[in-house]
């Protein structure tokens, strides 16, 4: 009997305290693993400098974060979703269905995507989108003919590139980085090499050709990495000929192991990305539930602190970590201050 009583009373106590502790006083953030280091730097500084508790930051990917963001309004849902891409219309609709109608979009800056290889490896120092397309596409243009990719070495199609086996580690399809890689590099290379024209000339519709341009070869020379950049780095470490796709911030923190390649002659750096010269970059965002402002203490202060000049500005800690600061930061600050929702 005593066991039954004990169990019942513990459950009762748990139930009572559950209702008592319902009021949440910390900001909850989830989403993109690219934004995670920035968000945790801001959360840490926020906790130190304000009387609010340090926000809790989870990762899990942009899509997962936005899905949780769109689960509804209330203390059991997250307040902020980090994303390495803009929210999709489909997601906005899903949000609206669950009652999350007023969403504030905050662009925090830009992230560059770089191609890097082992420091002591072959001289991979200059690429163009065409090179990447020629190396990784399933069908390429050789002597005016669209053929199954015959290239096994980089020097096969560009004599300036090293005589090394083609081996590329690219982000898996669940990553936001993959989309940028496809759009800004593979598709650009597809057009530049004339492969796209050849496809259209071969009877493909324009849309189909665009889709076909994004494909990568699947004979093992291009490897999808579903983990994060640490995994790509480990694969590069084990493979001297390997080329990996990384975020600029990750590369900047691992310059003792990696060397970076230029893209169309432009060296990736915070400056060249901010000026738009370096072609492969993307904006980073976070999204706030307006309904939670004023309910969850510190939410607006956190957002304002995130985009303030001393944090997200060119001399702030985020920039030091590798974020390319947004030249239009003042406009973003105004959006947060006015709580201006999307549309």
């Amino acid at each position: 009997m005593s066991f039954v009583k004990l169990t019942a009373s513990t459950l009762a106590i748990a139930a009572v305290t559950a209702t008592a502790a319902a009021a949440r006083d910390n900001v909850q953030v989830a989403g993109s693993s690219t934004v995670l280091p920035y968000a945790s730097i801001v959360a840490e500084a926020f906790g130190e400098n304000f009387d609010f508790p340090t926000p809790v930051v989870e990762s899990g990917g942009s899509s997962a974060g936005l899905k949780r963001f769109c689960e509804g309004v209330g203390e059991n849902t997250i307040d902020v979703a980090n994303a390495s891409r803009a929210i999709k219309d489909k997601e906005i609709a899903a949000c609206a269905e669950a009652g999350v109608t007023d969403i504030i979009e905050v662009r925090i800056g830009y992230d560059g995507i770089v191609f890097a290889s082992q420091l002591q490896g072959p001289e991979f120092t200059a690429f163009t989108p065409s090179d990447i397309f020629n190396a990784l596409a399933p069908k390429v243009l050789v002597d005016g003919q669209l053929v199954d990719n015959p290239h096994t070495k980089w020097s096969d199609f560009n004599a300036d590139l090293p005589d090394a086996e083609i081996m590329a580690f690219i982000p898996g399809t669940k990553h936001g980085t993959r989309e940028v890689f496809e759009e800004k590099v593979v598709a650009a290379g597809c057009e530049a090499t004339g492969a796209m024209e050849a496809m259209i000339a071969g009877g493909m519709s324009e849309d189909d050709a665009e889709d076909a341009c994004l494909a990568v070869r699947n004979d093992g020379r291009s490897v999808d990495i579903d983990g994060d950049y640490t995994e790509t780095l480990a694969r590069i470490d084990a493979n001297p000929n390997g080329i990996g796709v990384f975020g600029l911030a990750f590369y900047e923190n691992n310059t003792d192991k990696l060397k970076v390649a230029t893209m169309s002659g432009v060296v990736p750096s915070t400056e060249s990305i901010a000026s738009g010269e370096y072609p492969v970059s993307r904006p980073l965002y976070f999204y706030i539930k307006k309904a939670h402002i004023g309910v969850i203490p510190g939410l607006k202060e956190y957002a304002e602190f995130f985009v303030s000049d001393e944090i997200a500005g060119p001399d702030g800690p985020l920039s030091a970590y590798g974020l390319v600061s947004d030249p239009e930061l003042a406009a973003t600050q105004a959006v947060v201050a006015d709580e201006a929702t999307m549309n």
Partner: peptide, 21 residues
């Protein structure tokens, strides 16, 4: 269940602490 997170605040003493991140 959201425990893989960046948490810097110590949870409070029990029983409230059981509900803190």
């Amino acid at each position: 269940i959201g425990m893989v997170a960046f948490v810097r605040e110590y949870p409070a003493g029990p029983p409230e602490g059981f509900f803190d991140p």
